[in-house]
Amino acid sequence: MRVTEYLYPESLEAALRLLAAPDTSPIAGGTVVSLEGARAPRLVDITRIGLDQVTLGQGELLIGAAVRAADLTLETLGASPEAMLIAEAAAGMATTPLRNAITVGGNLAYLCGWADLPVAALALDASIEVQQEGAAPQLRPATAWVAQHPRAALPKEALVTALRLPLKPGARGVAYHRFRASATENALVSVAVAVTVAEGICVEARVALGAVTPRPVRAEAVEAALIGGPLTSARIAQAVEALDVRVSPNFRMSPKARTRILAATTRRAILEASQRATGGQA
């Protein structure tokens, strides 16, 4: 669609007001808007309205929607298992120049099949903060975010303003693994894992899968099989047998091969997360 107007609001309020008008949509990193065309003739640039901040709050890490993928590092996010998972997910996204452009909000809102941040968000029980003019900010849990594509689920005037990660206590370990045949191609399989261990027993487990289904999903059967026992490699291998996700077709690889690789990648990711949770004691 031809763009007729490009607007630079200077505050969140101004941006929300502009977005409330018809035929208007946000532009952030612009990687999709420039390559695939705009979805509306009026574009509102949301990178100059203060959404590029990372805030460490009470038990929560808040990442502004306009933060670039390249800035999702431990240096900017601080050291926590949650930060580590986000950083690992972001580090392997696309290529360096694209990471310099892609924003957190754009990645969450566009939610393409291989998008990385939604997978990590899912494993971290994160919420996506959404605002729109005349309404209170909403927090949408990541599980709901991926259940239905945000393009369908959200009103058009809604703006993603932040990704909010609860910082959970306890012995936590995370890992983000992806499988691809070359260093920078879109993942064929990606797996985000977060586990909490107490007295040698896994008390919480989140295993999120990306790139294997149209939108990321949690491997709940695997999570259930992990909880309640020690994270030994035997138990992990057994838990992964419970994987019951139907891998959708992809012309680059058959579902059969991808299912097998998914299992191996999931097992390795859980193993690494467990080792990190227990300081290598598992």
């Binding site: 070359s182 260093a183 920078t184 879109n186 012309f251």
Partner: peptide, 29 residues
């Protein structure tokens, strides 16, 4: 040897006519 190939559909169309899916080595590879 490893990543560059054409992926045809059943009527002979190449489905990966772009550098995203036709993978030539990058500096990291």
């Amino acid at each position: 040897a490893l990543t560059e190939r054409f992926i045809f559909n059943e009527w002979g169309k190449v489905q990966n006519g772009n550098f995203g899916d036709y993978r030539i080595p990058s500096a990291e590879d």
